[in-house]
Design a protein around this nucleic acid. Structure first.
Lengths: 230, 230
DNA sequence: GCGATGTTTCGGCCGGGACCGAAGCGTCGC
DNA sequence: GCGACGCTTCGGTCCCGGCCGAAACATCGC
């Protein structure tokens, strides 16, 4: 009761099973309606409404009313980052929500982390950029080197537009399955969008999995080669 | 109830005021006894014992029995990192545990984040190293360049000993007061130890504040100059 | 307009869990 | 060995908060 921020409120939000399920569902980056979230959480509409009101008051999620639907999404990538940090700690001790199903290997291979790529593929993307001198640490953030900029633009990404935004270009995010960093920030999001646009991969109809086609997988690995020490 | 780690348990741990106070107190890096934590949390010995048992079971803290005292500390820097992520989100919306007291400016200036320096001073340290090309991103972590290594060793730090450890040399940690990254990992911890050993600063007798002497402040700024663009 | 659908609000029930006092263990000092 | 001290365990109380059903409110299609 002395100093520092009050973490209790946020902890209490995550600490309820229904709300935790809702937040985890929203980590997939899609905006979901109150009804969908109620089903996801396994509670009735009344209880869900209550939970969503609290999550909104705690600034963890944002609401967009559209007709008779209320759509909810995470309030920002900082929230996603915090949730991943908690998930990483939980995964570390094997506290999974269910026995690893058939979908689990897909999830570890490639999945959405709010709006960018995570899993083996996400880490590979980061390694490829960083390992070939594409990233540099500057005082207040991570930035692209000229070599890195060239590679990104070669993929058809409008880098100037990204840099004009207020959102940081690069951020790192700790991957809970790989326990390594991957690339977040607006560049991470743009790269993921590009991968989808190029049809290298598709999002699973629901959930967080990202499924590469075999041709897309090949193209992805060619575009992001690993610098191996022989 | 589908996929991914179960974040509920950890959230519930943080979500109780007594436990949140305990964890925040332990963020100062010192090991505290059950009794001290009970006072910190504002509960009786019985309740505190119960809380500590749960936190230990959740692998957030570790216990060391020493005579009739039980000492507790955070279970690792990953736990500290997760707590800082939550605290950062809470601070962002002004959910402070009390009105900012006289100690608050000190905290923002320099404080302990588990075992390394945070606040303005922590960010300066990171900026100075990164801004002058002392840090480089490698595929799986952040590493020191040769120039960076020379600077660290010039301070009298045994770098070889650090690198022999299993713990990563460099990690980044998001600062909740500066909203910028600072240096964690074994190097961050070693630098903090060195600053104390050189008597540039002292830890406040309790809490997380780190107080620089005026001579120490000067020495610190000389050792970690900022690369300013004129 | 009218009913159908999605969401929120209200009232009330119920269970989990936080708390305390007292008792039980283990450790220290003498 | 014997109290003093620190911590844990046990039993019991109490309250917060999650849940649901019913009703109210909003929006859509017609």
């Amino acid at each position: 009761m002395k100093e520092g921020p009050d973490i209790t409120r946020i902890g209490a939000m995550i600490g309820d099973p229904a709300r935790a399920n809702m937040l985890t569902a929203l980590l997939a980056g899609r905006a979901l309606t109150a009804g969908e979230l109620a089903r996801e959480a396994g509670v009735g509409a009344a209880a869900a409404s209550e939970h969503l009101r609290k999550l909104e008051a705690a600034a963890l999620i944002a609401r967009v009313k559209q007709g008779r639907h209320h759509y909810f999404r995470l309030a920002g990538d900082e929230v996603a980052h915090m949730l991943e940090a908690v998930a990483g700690l939980a995964a570390q001790h094997g506290h999974l929500r269910s026995r690893p199903g058939p979908r689990d290997p897909d999830l570890r291979q490639a999945r959405i982390c709010y709006d960018h790529l995570a899993g083996t593929a996400g880490v590979r993307l980061y390694d490829s950029l960083a390992g070939q001198g594409g990233l540099v640490l500057t005082p207040d953030r991570i930035d692209l080197t000229d070599a890195g900029r060239a590679r990104i633009m070669a993929l058809g990404i409008d880098l100037a537009a990204l840099e004009a935004k207020r959102r940081p270009l690069c951020r790192t995010c700790l991957d809970w399955s790989e326990r390594r960093t991957h690339l977040a920030g607006s560049l991470g999001a743009a790269l993921f969008d590009r991968i989808i646009a190029l049809k290298w991969a598709n999002r699973a109809p629901e959930g967080r999995a990202v499924l590469f086609s075999s041709a897309g997988e090949q193209a992805f690995q060619d575009a992001f080669p690993l610098f191996t020490v022989d």
